[in-house]
Amino acid sequence: MCSLCGTLGAAAHWSEGGGDRTQVGARRDVLRERHRRVALLNRVLRSYTLSVDEWEETAYILHGPSGQAILCNDLTAVFAEVARLRGGVALDPLDSTLLERL
């Protein structure tokens, strides 16, 4: 559990791979990948006036169009919150409009 915010540590999300975080080098790789994930995610989200930041290697902060900041544990939570901010409409990677924007 995080002593600051009381968040319970969950098992790593499947998308985070299987790196051993106890190894210094591996931990650096995990962090690098998390920042790269954020960069890629922001390329998808930017046309929806949304953005994401990495938070302490444990979570992501989703920024909404009216200044909301939502703590999300993993990618699944990020996309669930994105859908909530869009009135229940999930971002659909099969949507041709989204693909054209990319």
Partner: peptide, 14 residues
């Protein structure tokens, strides 16, 4: 990294 992002998004919507 992108595959994980894509699949998570696909699972959220479909």
């Amino acid at each position: 990294t992108m595959f994980g992002l894509w699949l998570a998004m696909l699972l959220q919507s479909h």
